[in-house]
Design a protein around this nucleic acid. Sequence first.
DNA 1: TCTGGGGTCCTAGGACCC
DNA 2: TCTGGGGTCCTAGGACCC
Length: 432
Amino acid sequence: MQTHSTQPRFFLIDCNNFFASCERVFRPDLANQPIVVLSNNDGCVVARSREAKALGIPMGEAEFKLRPLLERYKVHVFSSNFSLYAAISQRVIASIESLVGDVEQYSIDECFVRLSPALAANALDTARAIVQRVQQWVGIPVSVGIAASRTLAKIACHLAKSYCSGIFFLNGTEDQHDKLFAKIPVQEVWGIGRRLAKRLYEADIHSVKDLKYADTDWVRRNLSVTTLNTVLELRGIPCIEDISAPAKARKTIICSRSFGEKIYEKETLAHALTAFVSRAAVRLRKNQLLAQGLGINIASSRFSDQYTNKAWQTLLPRPTMDTQILLQTAISGLETIFQAGVPYARAGVLLYELSPSTTRQGYLLDLEALDHDLRREQLMHTIDSINSRYGRSQIRFALEGTADEAWQMKQERRSQNYLGDWESLAIAHCKN
DNA sequence: TCTGGGGTCCTAGGACCC
DNA sequence: TCTGGGGTCCTAGGACCC
């Protein structure tokens, strides 16, 4: 079989235990201490430091189930602080770009680098420089996988974390790779989740090596083209497009949350939806987009016996970025689907049918309407820049209500926003 | 008593057309 | 009582990612 898996073409750079490492940047006293970070609402564990993993704390476990263990081992517990993590993430990316040029950011804590021939020739040295610079400049430890495809680079990074310190270069012979791959369960592969793993298992495909040599016709017929691409990637043939290609415009903007407490009143739901629409609209404008589709949903707890999830959606007459129009639409949807007596636990807003704000349609020579909409957009941008300078929701729609309502998330153990808020700047003390 | 919040892509099936 | 073959477009749902 023809494979090409020894030429390095990609780095995958992954921040180690990212959220936990972020909490440590401003708390050096927590070095070597077990840390967990909780999801919004302090519901379940979304990140663990190495020490917390060693205590056997599973990812995704509900906090209330872990409480005795967390107390017994004096684990440091944080609510998630996404504005801090996003600010640190930007700095990590900038540090990497200072060494290799453009990177493809894949998630808040991971990025790919496509290697030019010059970089490929010095892959290992460059990877070492990246690890060192991100540690020195930002204080975040990262691991690097180096391989011939993105999927293999993910595996290499996984190996970097389990077998060695920080860097794994998949540059051995085919046989050497296959020996390693035979020991890695197929579910570790990027793109193979629980369901697919079960189906592969039933077809007697258990390891990464089994999947690499799986029959491609069978995969195409019984699974999907996505999984076929994964198989080819495992053989060192890149099939996955640029992750962050600018041409790939986003198709939806979602803002949804579960509430701090159950909600029964329509008014309170309206406040929550107002806040969600406002946030989604800010993201819409930041991406220079207009939305024509708007959907909302309101649901009770997934874990209750009478789970209900009601959704409603509509197309607006014209694409818009005007918060007020989106709000009125969302509230009219709420009137349609709200039911009294339901203990609502979460709600969400979905904007879809997105188009760039540079090209607009639907005015049919109605210049007055066009002029009105452009003025509204000016107003929206002005509000956005004020809020971004002086703090979110300084100017907001009255329907959003105040900051301490029942629908707000519980975040009892949140660290300070050290990088995004003047009040939270770290203070350096000088000793003589 | 407590259980995240975003996103993407693919596929199957229905509606509709000629 | 029978009852085309193909194409396109849309939507809902399933699967995945971090």
